[in-house]
Design a binder for these strands. Sequence first.
RNA 1: GCGGGCGUGGUGGAACGGUAGACACAAGCGACUUAAAAUCGCUAGGGCGCAUCGCCCGUGCGGGUUCGAGUCCCGCCGCCCGCACCA
Length: 863
Amino acid sequence: MARYAPAEIEPKWQRAWDAAGAFVAAPDPAREKYYVLEMFPYPSGRIHIGHVRNYTMGDVVARYKRAQGFNVLHPMGWDAFGMPAENAAMASGGHPKDWTYGNIAQMRDQMKPMGLSIDWSREFATCDPEYYGQQQALFLDFLEKGLVYRKAAVVNWDPVDMTVLANEQVIDGKGWRSGAAVERRELVQWFFRISDYSEELLDALDTLDDWPAKVKTMQANWIGRSRGLQFAFSMVEEAEGHDRIEVYTTRPDTLLGASFVAVSPDHPLARALERHDDGIAAFNAECRRMGTSEEELETAEKKGYDTGLKVRHPFDTSWELPVWIANFILMDYGTGAIFGCPAHDPRDLDFARKYDLPVISTFAPVEDDGQPLAEDGGPAFVPPKSERVIYIRGFAGETEQTGEEAVEAAIRFCEDNGVGQGVTKYRLRDWGLSRQRYWGCPIPVVHCDDCGVVPEKKENLPVTLPYDEDGAPIDFSVPGNPLDRHPSWARTECPACGKPARRETDTMDTFVDSSWYYARFTAPRAEAPTDPEETPYWMNVDQYIGGIEHAILHLLYSRFFARAMHICGHLPESAKEPFEALFTQGMVTHAIYQTTDAEGRPVYHFPDAVENRDGRMVLRDTGEEVEVVPSAKMSKSKKNVVDPDTIIRQYGADTVRWFVLSDSPPERDVEWTAAGAEAAHRHLSRVYRIVSEIAEKPAEEGAPAADEALLREMHKTIHEVTGGVESFGFNAAIARLYAFTNTLAKSEAGGAAKRQAAAALAQLMSPMTPHLAEELWATLGHEGLILDAPWPVADAAMLVEDEITLPVQINGKRRGEITVPRDLGKEEVEKAALESEPVARALDGGAPKKVIVVPGRIVNVVL
RNA sequence: GCGGGCGUGGUGGAACGGUAGACACAAGCGACUUAAAAUCGCUAGGGCGCAUCGCCCGUGCGGGUUCGAGUCCCGCCGCCCGCACCA
């Protein structure tokens, strides 16, 4: 008998699918469509086993939906702009364009053998001028609708490399390449008005029924709606033209616990003061040496500087509070100034203890009869706002009330007394899209001395990136932005007046590229961003699959973009929420094998260099024992990577696909182990052997009981695997398929029933192991592709058993079981349970206190 | 620091609030074989006992709700993701 030979059957069936044009999608109004999309990859050069898992999951969905009769769209492309290409050009020469397209070619070659049901005719890269030209057209439309504007914003500036740094390039306040201390610099940059949509983006989360709750929670917290009071402290003495400091607080009920006022180092008052005060100038300069990321501000040691200025408390003009500059106040949020209430905010409490400022509690726990907590070295008291507390320094509402009630009462009180207004604010900031880099989509505007900022004419799009400079490919080893220093690229004429003018040399954030690619896939060659005929048919994405790391930014930006594209007429109203269902998958991890060198530093070893000798993991060459760190994120530097290419060559694509789906639930991480891959391969070989044997034998009737038992199992398996695939329970579906394979192997049924069961097995496996499934289908003598066979449907009558076994508990612990007819009444079940041997013995003639019968589930006897 | 998630045998994991450990890996024993590979079968959370049957313990730690908790609630610990210029 022939052996399972994936190296032969996989290319064979891939050719058959290609010849049939099976995956080329075309709109068909007569059929219901289904759009499956996996987050497209960055072309780093090699596909990663994590990609394999991601695309396999999408492929299972695509193939399953296809078998159910849907017109499936399953495209693939490349998120191809971004810093790694420029970094590579700087590090080892070459050009970002060549590097990127070379990587794309390699990765496409690696992906093709996986047998994914992708419509490759729709492939594009975001760095194709045909794509980014349409993105520039979108930008111009957004500009016209007032969805983009310019304002000044701070960036990380590396004074040695003369370049803007990303947050990840700032390490301990220093540039990653130059090591120079990073400065904050202000540049005028473009922003999308996403914050205008805060309320809508927040409220619409409720309509996303098929998104994970955790993603919706994360987005809701990120948008951060808050209700608070905005008011001003008047200054005791005017300074630098400021006679008041405007603050925003979400806890106006703690106003009588105020102990200081603090402003951001970037607050206008702080900036004015630093001009005449060396101490403040030095403090602000120190604050500005920190990176711009919120994380860094929040984790840095809390520091402040007393300006010596004082403000008056709004309720008591004789109560004066000091004004500090503090490094943890964000200029971007609220008004860039706060009042500190140390008793009810851990940060303020740290600050107050450090600088010896008063701590005044305004409320206290109910259970301690209103004893304040923070005064004597205790922690800040910050209960949930829904919890009732006792106000010891309240001024509005009841003495005992919840924080929410108190905040509303305080806002009403303040408004009635002319101290500020209640306002709703959002944490979400506008999206800065300007990047001072080469490898991105050029922002299509022109700066004219006479006309100012002028949009490029649409007929002049795309504004393409220059490849060379004075005839030679651009040299990235020279510091600075190549677009900025290019001798001719930026020189153009003003689209308005025709005079010589200069192009914008900033490019767009790569998040812009990925905020609409899902729409472009519906009409990838259209002469406009989308196509009014094709786009409405395919939109929305029915199932989107990707990593949890994109839970906030990418998904929020895409939701904003879909709205903006709708406003500009590029998407229908119904596409404002472009992703109907979202699934976030886990990572693929792998053990790290490490030894230590003479200095005690870790030395990492590739999995190939390690072998198992009598249960100990040792280096193949030296026999030295290695330490095994399980389930670590794959990383080249730790050498715990596996190359999908190698594995596919060794075992075939179906084995890899089967393995990455089995064992671990898709939303969780899965650990790649050689033994697991080996086992997956053994199983597929076994299925091949079992089905081949069945195909060779005559299709005759068997013993009725054996035939029925096998077919019952088959229908159960169809039911459970279908449910598993529907609910992303791929691991559970695979476990069921293992069990069914065992049943089939041991079955005494006749050839006819076995052929039927084997065909069902092939079909149920076809989304996961499509090549093997085609081979088995043909082996069993079926005409045509299994790809085109309709998904099997379980016969409901075959799923129901006549008798069921119920566990019997005594006091909640399992003590036995009873087998009863399926629809036996509650009383009879109770009777049977009480008569069962363990219960009768425990009761010893007595009566139970209580009997709980959960029909079809369990009986619990309480003694 | 803030927001979100996860934690179950030697390992990956299963389990609508209802028999904890399905299914697999690794391991051990056996069959087949001259032998090996492949294949097939069996054992298997820990402990105890008057051992074909029964008891106790057990889902990161400590409490709680419930007839019943891996699952729900509160408080810890550890790890992972995000924090707006990484993609």
